[in-house]
Amino acid sequence: MIKVEHLTKRYGTFTAVDDLSFEARHGEILGFLGPNGAGKTTTMRILTGFMPPTGGHATVAGYDVFTESMQVRHLVGYMPETVPLYPDMSVRGYLEFMAELRRIPNRRARVREALARVDMLDRAESLVRNLSKGLRQRVGLAQAIIHDPPVLILDEPTIGLDPRQVLAVRSLVRELGKDHTVMFSTHILSEAEQICDRVLIIHQGRAIAAGPPQTLRDELQKSGRVFVRIGGASTDAEELVALLERVPSVARVEAMDTGFAVTAWGGKDIRPAIARAVTEAGRPLLELRPLAMTLEDIFLEVTQVDDVEAGGA
């Protein structure tokens, strides 16, 4: 549904998006992950026809975003990062205006449907200016789905919301993902992990990793890490570190919470070896579990490598 090929956007000498290529299939929720200033918003603005790319091209539902902009705009629902609302209008008035701009038939029914979808039927007559941040966000979403577009592009839909509202928006996005292609950006990694079918990590305008969250984690989890907690009378840390370091294949032992994080060479599973070593030393083994690398760790690792490269150049 969304196809981006070698997309580049420069502002003067600054390159916001650098030779970016990716694809989002029909009915897929694509998480667009990256730190602030990574080029997420710029990419979305190009896809929605707000600004033209400097190089490369992109299509939405087969239409070129630059040469067939009007068609693309009909097929995309877009919620910009700062939800663009008119404070003087009522929720219903705003949505009807949006529906009229899009020239969709059965406007009243569509407005009602969109309001129902974001659970705001009871606030239809409220003035936008009197709405809380969370409700405004929902009006923004209602605006994006009013024409039931096949493609939804949401720029940081959960930013600035309280935890309960974040959950509500996430479940809404998940639900919309059942019958829409959704591309949404976030810098919260757990969010992408929870909602997305696929994640695209971008940094300094370039894609640095892509794939389903699970695969990404498996692929990038290079080092086998386990958490070990050892009990017993003597809890002298140095002694325990020495004990663990003697275990074959152990690369690094670090204190972590009430135990140790042990990293093995070459991603080996060293749990049996550790268990044996600890019991042989006559110590009770209280806890031994693999430390799953979160997307957060992956992200930090990948972007750090990049920063070092950039800094060294």
Binding site: G49, P84, Y86
Partner: peptide, 13 residues
């Protein structure tokens, strides 16, 4: 200023 221009410019208008 309000950023609503971004919305108008991404509408089929």
């Amino acid at each position: 200023r309000e950023g609503t221009i971004e919305l108008l410019l991404t509408m089929p208008v």
